[in-house]
Each structure stands twice: as structure tokens, then as C-alpha cells.
């Protein structure tokens, strides 16, 4: 099976406090730790496991700048066979549809049976996979937490739905899936693994290579534009208990007793 996984380099929210910069034009990017989007990492692990079971190839792809190459290499160290970087000044400021348009152009140059994305990334829109599927006229399933290959032409997938339930579907190949966290346990990648793939070639494709009309992507084509970042005024929020740990615990126990949290 020929599998393509779309990945993204994002600020790691478990390693950083995300703050808005002074003008509200962006988040504070100094000293941010970046990593591969958590959902994408599960998708790559799933692709590797499928390949190891039924044979084939795993390609990882991203739209980004030079620095995005490091996450492709990380996923190749995990076990992906090839990486492709889609990079061009014309791609900057693309909205979800712009990104899907860029990915579609590269996908149509190849021949993939299964295309995966993470269920969502840092923007939280969970949109690129579904858009890509519709543009490619392929069937789509989101929030996938189980994949079983039935034969060369179809797979069975579980989708995570409300209440911890799982919706089982049969889907014809080729198809696009967005992958939910928890579908597997992504393998650890050490520094030695990354060194091993350090010299592998990662082709960079721009708008010209992909025959993309620059007007169809980037900021000018975006129907949805972010205007600013801000921290909403959420009212008073929680009453923060202050003082020494003993004082805080004393206050807390009193409150818990009053609210029925302690007998």
C-alpha cells in the first residue's frame, strides 16, 4: 500500500506557554519549542504499522519553510520511507483551502492508496483532510481511531464519536483519513535514529514544480483571514487561593467540606 501522511511543524503546547505578542499580530515566537503536530505523529505511526503488515511505502509531506524539514526527518527516523517538502513564498498566508490545494497538486503527481492527516493541528480547525478528500473526489472519514485493511480495494475504519463510542465504516480506496490520538502508541525516536536519516535527500517542490496558479493559494486567495490574536476577558475566573501551602490546604478542605466533597 502506498501511503502519504501530511504533517505539520507546530509550537509544542506541552512545552510552551503560548502568549500573544504586544501588538496582537502573532503569538510570542521567541524561544518557542517546535515539534511535529501530535495528531500527525499518530498518523505516521499508523502508516508505518500498516506498511509493515501489508507492504508498500510511507511518504511524509508538509507545507512549510526550510525549518519544516526537521520534522520530516524526524518522521523518517520513525520509519517513513520518503519525505517531500512543499515550500514557496506564494504559499504563505494560505487558509485551509489553500493548503489543501497545494497538497492536492503534489498528490496528483503520484499514486497513493491511502492519505492521512492528523485530526487537527495548532489552529484547531480540523479542516485540511476533509477539504483535500473533497478536492480529490475521494471518500473521507475523520477522527479515525482504528484501521483494518480488508483487501486491496477497501479498509474498515473506526471513528471516535461522542460518549466514547466508535462508529465503524467500510471505505473504498483510495481514501483520505484524519487520525485521532490514541489510535496507537507512537514509537520513540532517539537522536541516533535522526542521525541515520540526516543525509537522505528531501525534495523541495514549489508552486512552479506543482503547476499551481499562485493566485489560487496564499493570502490573496484566502477567504478566511486571521485578523489578530487576543486574550479574551473571561470575567473573574477562579478565586485563586494564596498563602503558604498549609494555609491553602486549610482553606481548600473547608471549602470541600462545605460543598460536599469531604465527609
Amino acid at each position: 500500500m502506498n501511503i502519504l501522511v501530511c504533517v505539520k511543524r507546530v509550537p509544542d503546547t506541552s512545552e510552551n506557554e503560548i502568549e500573544v505578542n504586544s501588538s496582537g499580530s502573532d503569538i510570542e515566537r521567541d524561544d518557542l519549542v517546535y515539534s511535529v503536530n501530535e495528531w500527525d505523529n499518530y498518523a505516521v505511526e499508523e502508516a508505518i504499522q500498516i506498511r509493515d503488515k501489508v507492504g508498500g511505502k510511507v511518504t511524509v509531506i508538509t507545507v512549510g519553510d526550510d525549518e519544516s524539514e526537521e520534522i520530516l526527518r524526524r518522521e523518517m527516523a520513525m520509519g517513513a520511507d520518503e519525505g517531500i517538502l512543499l515550500s514557496d513564498d506564494a504559499f504563505e498566508g494560505s487558509d485551509g483551502k489553500g493548503l489543501a490545494t497545494i497538497l492536492k497538486a503534489e498528490i496528483e503527481k503520484g499514486s497513493y492508496d491511502l492519505i492521512m492527516t492528523g485530526a487537527q493541528a495548532d489552529g484547531g480547525a480540523a479542516q485540511v483532510g476533509g477539504m483535500l478528500a473533497a478536492m480529490l473526489d475521494m471518500p473521507y472519514a475523520s477522527l479515525v481511531n482504528k484501521i483494518e485493511v480488508l483487501d486491496d480495494s477497501k479498509i474498515k475504519v473506526g471513528r471516535e464519536i461522542e460518549g466514547g463510542n466508535q462508529e465503524m465504516n467500510e471505505i473504498d480506496l483510495p481514501c483520505v483519513l484524519s487520525i485521532q490520538t490514541g489510535i496507537n502508541e507512537p514509537r520513540y525516536v532517539g537522536i541516533r535514529g535522526i542521525r541515520k536519516v540526516a543525509s537522505l535527500d528531501i525534495p523541495v517542490h514549489g508552486a512552479g514544480d506543482l503547476s499551481i496558479d499562485a493566485a489560487s493559494v496564499g493570502e490573496a486567495a484566502a477567504k478566511v483571514k486571521r485578523l489578530d490574536y487576543f486574550v479574551p476577558d473571561m470575567g473573574e475566573g477562579a478565586e485563586i487561593l494564596e498563602g503558604s501551602t498549609e494555609e491553602i490546604i486549610e482553606k481548600l478542605i473547608e471549602m470541600l467540606k462545605a460543598k460536599g466533597g469531604l465527609k
Binding site: P11, T13, E17, I18, E19, V20, I27, D122, G123, G124, K223, V224, K225, R226, L227, D228, Y229, F230, V231, P232
Partner: peptide, 13 residues
């Protein structure tokens, strides 16, 4: 965005 750590205004055409 970022798991609810920041909010944004967006304009949709």
C-alpha cells in the same frame, strides 16, 4: 487556537 490558550478574530469572505 493552541488548545484554547489564545483567541483570534477571523474575517470570512
Amino acid at each position: 487556537e493552541y488548545s484554547g490558550m489564545v483567541s483570534t478574530h477571523v474575517n470570512a469572505d
